[in-house]
């Protein structure tokens, strides 16, 4: 058995090199990874990959952009592995395996108005779909992006958020922070409140939601009030994962595994599952 095998065994990672690191916020960095032969595997928006930095550990992350020549992971510093990842430098080799999960229904959303609603690091998985929509701009109708964070400093992907995305055709970007602060003359509100103010039309619209569990739950209620039906609302879930391939057991909600059957579910599918997320 050779070293650094691009392994047939799905539990064994292959090696990629970190070619860029972007400081997004005080506790979020985006890692750009690739190999000498290009991306380690093709990824669709919303899919996941296991990232490992040994001996610190291995964890499941959404791919926040699948570029032609590299993959991007926006990772918040919250535990042992992510602490270690935040300390690495450009040039470091790390392990990846994947892609895992179903991803967003990019084809089924064609021709729709897209409403993206995210809080905090929850923008990371949605970004893969947002950028995909811009890359295939003619396939999607109006695009609205609503994004909130605790403070200005905690807003991820600032250049895209303030410069690139608002310039796109038929696109509106709404940004908000939780509490007023100096140097911010934008919106101050929680995401669900701001959403109800904007009051987007549910007509031919798909809402894609990701953020802290409490934000997701409130936003789902707001969308329902505004007339979105369960098939029009999509979210992406997270759970602790070890294998990524539906074997190790822990990421189940009822009989579904988030790593394999998810992480993307529409609200109609979620309602079929036990309320354990």
């Amino acid at each position: 058995m050779s070293g650094n095998c691009n392994c047939e065994n799905p539990l064994v990672p292959s090696i990629v090199k970190v070619v860029d690191i972007v400081d997004e916020t005080p506790d979020v960095k985006t890692f750009y990874v690739t190999t000498d032969n290009g991306i380690p595997f093709p990824v669709m928006p919303g899919q996941l990959a296991m990232v490992s930095l040994l001996p610190a550990g291995e964890g499941m992350f959404s791919v926040s952009w699948q570029a032609e020549d590299h993959l991007e992971f926006a990772i918040r510093r919250v535990g042992v592995l992510t602490d270690a990842l935040h300390d690495i430098n450009i040039g470091q080799e790390i392990g990846v395996r994947g892609p895992y999960g179903n991803g967003f229904p990019v084809a089924a959303c064609e021709g729709k108005n897209m409403l993206f609603i995210a809080g905090g690091i929850g923008l990371a998985p949605l970004r893969s779909f947002i950028k995909y929509c811009f890359q295939h701009r003619d396939k999607y109708s109006n695009i609205q992006i609503l994004y909130g964070a605790r403070s200005q400093a905690d807003l991820c992907f600032k250049r895209e958020l303030f410069e690139e995305w608002p310039e796109q055709k038929d696109t509106e970007v709404y940004t908000t922070i939780d509490r007023a602060e100096e140097g911010w003359d934008g919106k101050v509100a929680f995401v669900p409140t701001y959403l109800e103010e904007i009051n987007p039309s549910p007509d031919n619209t798909i809402a894609v939601v990701c953020g802290p569990p409490i934000m997701i739950k409130m936003v789902l209620q707001s969308l329902e009030k505004m007339g979105f039906n369960d098939e029009q609302v999509i979210t992406t879930l997270e759970m602790r994962m070890k294998c990524g391939i539906g074997k190790c057991g822990r990421c189940n909600i009822g009989s579904e595994y988030i790593c394999l059957d998810g992480p993307v579910f529409n609200l109609a599918q979620l309602r079929q599952l036990p309320p354990e997320w």
Binding site: M1, N4, C5, P13, I15, L54, P55, Q92
Partner: peptide
């Protein structure tokens, strides 16, 4: 055991040990 790893500088080598 699943695989061994060895990190030297910024390089990492992985070998399956099934």
């Amino acid at each position: 055991k699943m695989y061994t790893f060895a990190a030297r500088g910024q390089s990492v080598e992985i070998k399956e040990t099934g």
